[in-house]
Simulated assay, not measured.
Amino acid sequence: MATDIVPELLEAIERDFNNAISKSKRLKSIRAMIENGTATYQQANEYAVEIGEILARTFEMHIKSDVLPDGKMYYNIAERILDPTLKNNHVIVAKVSAEIQEQLNKSVGLGLRGIEPPVNQLRIDSIINRVVAEEVFDDVAWILQEPIVNFTQTTVDDTIKANVEFQGESGLNPLIMRSAHGSPPCEWCRSMQGIYKYPDVPDDVYRRHDRCRCVVEYYPGDSEEIRRQNVWSKEWSG
């Protein structure tokens, strides 16, 4: 009978992932900002990128063709490793994002809890299905790199969308601000940059391509009663 490699492999991945998180100076810095009430969705996005990059590095360290049977990532291995680890990334980032959201709500006098979005199971399933499609894992190992970061960032965007829609349905008109980042940012990202007022928020505002580092931010409350922020200079006006 073939040896089941998943328990030992998953244990090693989770151990090194947690160790890297505990040592991350960036995560500690953002946590301090959350605790003193100065964090925004800018920090939530940075937190997600760091969490995603840590998991991607951990995958790269432990998952290679030479540790897989026949050098292939079979479905029963991929599903048992990727599903729990990606869900864990979602839980970590959703909790942090909702915590920041709640602080933003309080900053404008709203006694609303931050809403955590559901995990995007379709995204997880698509990553699993893609990685098992190749006969040799090393030919598709890149799927467990930048797409993992992108998946983790999307949790922040989904948190914003969930809270925007909840507050909008409650009669408020929150603002969504997307700023383009990159060296330089692509044409599509530049076209999406701007300030949007609920309910006139296209779904593309919450979307991102691979290696996209654009930042989507959110100011809760009634947009008629708050100052407007220039998403390029980050200076308040009005």
Score class of each variant (00 low, 15 high):
Glu79Ser: 15
Val131Tyr: 02
Gly111Trp: 07
Lys64Glu: 04
Ser24Gly: 12
Ile51Cys: 11
Ile34Trp: 09
Lys87Asn: 13
Lys106Pro: 01
Met192Tyr: 04
Gln153Tyr: 10
Ala133Gln: 01
Thr38Pro: 06
Pro7Asp: 09
Ser179Leu: 08
Ile127Met: 08
Glu225Cys: 08
Ile5Val: 03
Asn89His: 10
Trp232Asp: 11
Gly171Ala: 05
Ala98Arg: 07
Lys23Thr: 14
Met61Gln: 14
Trp232Gln: 13
Tyr41Asn: 13
Gln121Lys: 14
Pro117His: 10
Arg80Phe: 00
Ala56Asn: 03
Val216Cys: 08
Ile143Cys: 02
Lys72Gly: 00
Ala180Asp: 02
Ala2Tyr: 08
Leu104Tyr: 02
Glu79Tyr: 11
Glu53Ile: 00
Phe59Glu: 06
Thr152Leu: 10
Pro174Met: 01
Glu46His: 11
Val149Ala: 13
Ala32Leu: 13
Ala20His: 01
Ser107Lys: 15
Ala39Gln: 12
Pro185His: 04
Arg80Ala: 03
Ala162Asn: 04
Pro184Arg: 08
Asn89Leu: 12
Gln121Leu: 15
Ala20Val: 02
Ile148Asp: 08
Asp222Asn: 12
Lys234Gly: 08
Arg80Asn: 06
Pro174Thr: 00
Asp66Pro: 00
Pro199Arg: 07
Ile21Phe: 04
Leu55His: 11
Ile124His: 05
Met1Asn: 07
Ile148Pro: 05
Gly111Ile: 04
Asp139Ile: 00
Arg208Leu: 14
Asn36Met: 13
Glu102Tyr: 02
Val201Thr: 09
Asp204Asn: 13
Glu217Met: 14
Glu225Phe: 06
Tyr218Gln: 03
Val67Glu: 00
Ile30Glu: 09
Phe59Cys: 07
Arg211Gln: 15
Asp83Ile: 13
Ser233Arg: 08
Gln229Trp: 09
Ile115Gln: 01
Phe137Arg: 04
Ser107Gly: 04
Glu46Cys: 06
Gly114Leu: 10
Met33Glu: 15
Glu165Met: 04
Tyr218Gly: 02
Gly71Leu: 01
Ser65Gly: 04
Gly111Tyr: 02
Ala2Arg: 06
Leu10Asp: 03
Leu55Glu: 11
Ile30Ala: 09
Lys28Glu: 15
Trp236Glu: 09
Arg15Glu: 14
Asp210Asn: 13
Leu110Ser: 03
Asp139Ser: 03
